[in-house]
């Protein structure tokens, strides 16, 4: 099995309340808070699809979409 790859990191800006949890705990520093205090993905290429931000978001505002595993294997 190849390493999972991020396809899309969606932040629902209507739901995000700017708590900063996702940004603070992302080991790869993929997320940051913008001037409106909403989370934004800034280094998506570093994302390792651990999904911890998605699971820790108290507002269900994050959706991580990974590349299909099969495609990954094809590439690999």
């Amino acid at each position: 099995m190849g390493k999972r790859k991020l396809k899309e990191l969606q932040i629902n800006r209507e739901w995000c309340k700017g708590c900063g949890i996702c940004a603070a705990f992302c080991a790869k520093k993929v997320l940051e808070m913008d001037e409106l205090d909403k989370a934004v993905p800034v280094r998506t290429e570093d994302c390792v699809v651990c999904r911890l931000c998605e699971m820790r978001c108290p507002d269900l505002a994050i959706e991580i979409v990974a590349e299909e595993q099969i495609e990954e294997e094809d590439i690999g």
Binding site: E14, W15, K17, G18, C19, G20, I21, M55, R56, C57, P58, D59, L60, A61
Partner: peptide
Amino acid sequence: FPHMWCAGCGHGI
């Protein structure tokens, strides 16, 4: 949604 809880409320987690 967005729900009624405060920003960062653990209940959302």
